[in-house]
């Protein structure tokens, strides 16, 4: 089949004209390329919505369905029945959105990158676009953040509607429109960092050893303040330990922005998310350069 479509007569390229050696300014060309790379990624997202939507929705849906719908129905309500169950549903909505956002960092940035760098080598062509290599990494963060925000918007209705007990929402817009993008950028930076640190064969380990503890100990199912009850020798060790988990600040941030429930002080949430996104972003871009240049 392949050979039948090979040309048998010479290909004429006579209409290809060669430009003289002339360049656009580096900054202008870089921004154009940056926007085009983003356009490419969003086109791929649009083309793969059929996979993006179930992959984004199913995990939060199952979580909310089992914990906040089935459990109350079968009398196993987390935190007891009635008002406590309603409080739990309200707790959970913020955590589930945080979870959806952080998963986008892994799924829309880290996983494709692991493959493109370590297996298909597709990244080599992207890196030849006329912009600094580091900006290709930054573009990955931008794309991951957009994916994360879309995921948050998709997941919100599920978390709000599915629970058997009413969810109490109290939306603080200023917090929401600042914390949501900040969370999405942090998650995407984390994705870039992981994407440049893992080989394709190590992906199961990424999920099993890294993503699992991040998601289970990310203040998704409980507010971070409640962990003060977990003590050894009078030290709330789990509460302290999980401060290293960026998901904690996302969940607590969404808790503050969406619900009237207790949450970590925003004086901690904002600096932590900014700090994490900067740290992971810089490490991610550095790691990216290191992986694609030799």
């Amino acid at each position: 089949m392949a050979n039948a479509t090979e040309p048998t007569t010479p290909i004429s390229t006579s209409s290809i004209s060669i430009a003289p050696i002339a360049t656009r300014s580096a900054s202008k060309a870089s921004w154009t390329a940056f926007r085009a790379l983003l356009l490419r990624d969003l086109t791929v997202l649009r083309k793969s919505l059929k996979e993006f939507i179930p992959r984004t929705l199913l995990q939060p849906f199952m979580l909310v369905f089992v914990f906040a719908y089935v459990f109350p129905k079968i009398g196993q309500g987390v935190g007891g029945g009635g008002a406590a169950a309603a409080a739990f549903s309200t707790q959970l909505i913020a955590g589930v959105i945080g979870l959806a956002v952080i998963f986008q960092g892994i799924q829309s940035v880290a996983l494709p990158l692991v493959n493109e760098i370590g297996f298909t080598r597709e990244i080599e062509d992207r890196v030849l676009a006329p912009l600094p290599v580091g900006m290709v990494g930054v573009e990955k963060i931008a794309n991951g953040a957009i994916n994360g925000l879309i995921a948050a918007v998709l997941v919100f209705p599920i978390a709000a509607i599915v629970p058997a007990t009413p969810v109490h929402l109290q939306i603080k817009w200023l917090e929401l429109i600042t914390l949501a993008p900040l969370s999405a950028i942090t998650a995407a930076s984390l994705g870039l960092f992981f994407g440049t640190k893992f080989e394709p064969r190590q992906v199961p380990m990424l999920f099993g050893v890294i993503v699992l503890p991040i998601t289970f100990l990310g203040a998704v199912y409980y507010p971070w303040s409640a962990l003060s009850g977990v003590k050894a020798f009078g030290v709330p060790w789990l509460q302290i330990l999980t401060l290293a988990n960026p998901l904690v600040y996302m969940s607590e941030g969404f808790r503050a922005a969406l619900t009237p429930t207790p949450h970590m002080s925003l004086w901690a949430v904002y600096p932590a998310l900014i700090g994490f996104s900067l740290l992971l972003g810089v490490l991610g871009v550095k790691g990216f350069r290191k992986r694609v240049l030799s």
Binding site: A29, A33, R40, D125, A129
Partner: peptide, 8 residues
């Protein structure tokens, strides 16, 4: 198409 866009 996207290659062309990358290059302006």
């Amino acid at each position: 198409y996207f290659h062309g866009r990358f290059f302006g």
